[in-house]
Design a protein around this nucleic acid. Structure first.
Lengths: 340, 340
DNA sequence: CTGTTAGCGCTTTCAA
DNA sequence: TTGAAAGCGCTAACAG
């Protein structure tokens, strides 16, 4: 239980003042080489680490950033989190992991905790579109980076993907494959950002001169089970279709499962496309064709911007970055064939 | 950029001393109700949060624990991490996420960072069996919980699964299904903890009076690709077998892929069983039968023990907890049939 | 029940 | 080139 050495201990052992040790610690030029060497040796030998806590108290920073995320065990968010962690590591920052579990109260509690811990900045991947609770924080001067949400009139950097474009790209891919009867598994609410994916889908259809058919547009709960249920309903209704666009990969995977259970083959009988490129997408059978977005890179970019603000290398207004998206062709989509 | 309010600001605004505010903050009984109320109101109104940093400096604690883990984006570890995070949240602790990426140097850097930040305790999921670098930390009095490794003579709590038992259970399952020619995909090294799974496998075989056949025991690299390659080699060798025990799920999934590519059906022609119950296991086709271990619960248990030490409610020697394991029957195993 | 004093480990003046 | 003193925000110890 030997208590950790302090700067005083080092000073005493090296026969200098604590101030001199501090200078060595911070690589100040105004220290005699001999002294510096001696101090360095003592530090080494005693395994001394300066206390970030004491430093922070003086300097008003903690070199710690908070990451508020719905669920770090969800592969999609896990990838973003990893990018954030990597970016922080490279800059000597620590990351406090906060799972909101999509519960507003947890977000609030974590926001408090991060404020108490003096987090230098916060990456926020919101649960809802409601971000009012960020106001006090942002106004107290804590830099924030916000994912997939509008910043309102807050001075924060946002990171989004063009959801409309994602839906448009996915549907266009199906169209180019010759499909015309395309079902669409919608998210539980059109108000969510991924609701815009459906708008993109509709736009692609319209542009191709294909009328939208509400009978082909069931809603899912954004999870695998929801995609499964929605597809089962679709199948039960008897309406014909040769392809499914699901508003996210989880529902697409559920759709494939439902299709298989009913004896349909993917992609021979029905093509399926999703959006997100979650980790599972690559491993399901057949591997899922989808619209991908760079997740780790997004985390990296967010940290870059955030720390620019933390270190006051950037002091301007809100910045919005649109993350690139791209089609990943795997094996769940095939050209339209008559008998389907 | 309004600077955050301090305890002094509250004291002044409420017309009391900072000490009284401190008492209110810490729910001390010796404060007049009227005073308490007044202070509470001011705190509320000014949106004041006490600084954990200043508190920590006094109290020598940070209510923060470090989680060193190979890869938070790996679903297996992600589940453990989530358990850790949940346990911390419930107790008002924060978690600093540290991905070691299986690189010793990163472990070292993070260990330093955690020490600097004054982490109250550390959960360590090691990269290698080499844990010497934990010595200084543990000796300086920081509680540590260690996963899947031996503690040596360190006073830390360890959390393991009985790997021998896991291998034994898996093979027994296959045996009970009537299989006698059982291949085994071994990990890259027998020295790793999962090497013991092979011992369990061998023991089950021996107990059933079946001689081990080295020709049926290729090695994989612990990843999907390794399982695929090992199985391909097995198939190429021409030796017959009706079931495969893979030392982990990733290799089992690779095995299934290889089997499918060669025209074999799982489980009709060959049964496959793994160990770990990684997230993918449930989603592959057919869903993989495997030996599961509770991952979130493991994280929860580890945090419980760790914080008992942090808060000095436990002051004894090392504790070893064996996490329960159990068979999860899905659809990759079937009774032995002659023609296989 | 409340206030004063001192000090946690560090860095920023200011002096020598 | 080095040291002494003050103070970051908080709480424990002691008075009153």
């Amino acid at each position: 239980m030997a208590n950790k050495a302090t700067i005083q201990d080092i000073a005493r052992a090296a026969g200098v003042s604590n101030q001199t040790v501090s200078r060595v610690l911070n690589n100040r030029p105004d220290v005699a080489d001999a002294t510096r060497q001696r101090v360095t040796d003592v530090i080494q030998q005693m395994g001394y680490r300066p206390s970030d806590m004491a430093r922070g108290l003086r300097n008003k920073n903690t070199r710690t950033i908070g990451l508020i995320i719905p669920d770090s065990a969800n592969p999609f968010f896990a990838e973003i989190a990893k990018g954030v962690e990597t970016g922080c590591f490279d800059r000597g920052y620590g990351v406090i992991l906060c799972n909101s579990a999509k519960v507003l109260e947890r977000e609030l509690i974590y926001l408090d905790l991060l404020q108490s811990k003096g987090a230098d900045g916060i990456i926020f991947i919101a649960t809802s579109t409601h971000i009012d609770h960020l106001y006090p924080l942002v106004e107290s001067g804590v830099p924030v980076a916000l994912f997939y949400r509008d910043a309102g009139n807050l001075n924060v950097d946002t990171f989004k993907i063009d959801n409309f474009q994602a839906g448009y790209m996915a549907t266009t891919h199906l169209l180019e494959l010759g499909h015309t009867r395309i079902a669409c598994i919608r998210p539980s609410s059109d108000e969510t950002p991924s609701g815009r994916r459906v708008d993109g889908h509709l736009h692609a259809l319209e542009q191709a001169g294909i009328p939208a058919d509400m009978a082909l547009m069931p809603r899912g709960d954004n999870l695998i089970e929801g995609g499964e249920a929605a597809t089962a309903a679709l199948l039960a209704s008897g309406d014909s279709f040769s392809a499914i666009f699901a508003a996210n990969d989880a529902m697409a995977i559920g759709a494939m499962r439902s299709l298989r259970d009913s004896g349909r083959r993917v992609p021979d009988d029905v093509s399926v496309i999703g959006v997100d490129d979650i980790m599972l997408a690559k491993y399901v059978e057949p591997p899922l064709t989808t619209i991908a977005q760079p997740k780790q890179e997004a985390g990296l970019r967010a940290i870059e911007y955030l720390i620019e603000r933390v270190e006051e290398r950037y002091t301007g207004g809100p910045r919005e970055t649109l993350l690139p998206i791209y089609l990943v062709e795997r094996r769940s989509c095939a050209p339209y064939r008559e008998e389907a």
